[in-house]
Amino acid sequence: MKVLVAVKRVVDYNVKVRVKADNSGVDLANVKMSMNPFCEIAVEEAVRLKEKGVASEIVVVTVGPATAQEQLRTALALGADRAILIEHAEELTSLGVAKLLKAVVDKEQPQLVILGKQSIDSDNNQTGQMLAALSGYAQGTFASKVEINGDKVNVTREVDDGLQTVALNLPAIVTTDLRLNEPRYASLPNIMKAKKKPLETFTPEALGVSVASTVKTLKVEAPAVRSAGIKVKSVAELVEKLKNEAKVI
């Protein structure tokens, strides 16, 4: 089966971001960018499905600026067969991205689409579900286990009070949770080979998709700063402070 994986270029998860002084957004100039961690897990799962002989081809897709090619090359180095870049410089809403991905799904006809459960920049947790809705496919969100079972896929999902398993008809959409797998690192020879793998570029216009949005960001602010705390010397002092000063126990 063909597997489509969507990845996103985001600020590296270790970077402590700063809000711009004019409150127009977060300052991303000269900040390290990486593949979103949940997307790495999605690529890894696709590669494992290929290694098991379940997947025959892995297509990786991203929506983003021209520099997002780096993340596609990373995915190719990890084992994806070919890549698609939908080039769009501005940040889109999840619905805009889902509509573009739907166009790719229509073109590629994958049996399984794997996405991360959320990107660590916008923290939306929407795109996979929206793509499932637009494609009319079933969705297995927050997956910690994925098993292809004939013409169905069994997905074990991380829910608030434990785990839930659902069976979905293929084609289906899966979004990854942290515990689905441990992503591998790309080896140097594979990074070199990835440079030769095919990478196609489209624009939203070429795909005939309108990415107009109904949501506008008015401003972005830094969160309220917590006032500095104190170090206590002993457990007794801690308990005294919690009882008499903070009055929380």
């Binding site: 809403t93 999840s94 619905l95 889902a98 923290d123 939306n124 947790n125 929407q126 795109t127 996979g128 579900q129 929206m130 793509l131 499932a132 809705a133 637009l134 969705q139 969100t141 927050f142 999902r157 991380e158 829910v159 608030d160 949005s213 109904t214 949501v215």
Partner: peptide
């Protein structure tokens, strides 16, 4: 914004062709 709400609502938003605002 529980596992359930996050699972269902974006699907609703996309079917209504509107953006969702999360959390």
């Amino acid at each position: 914004a529980t596992a359930n709400g996050k699972n269902i609502l974006p699907r609703v938003a996309a079917q209504l062709d509107v953006d969702q605002i999360s959390e």
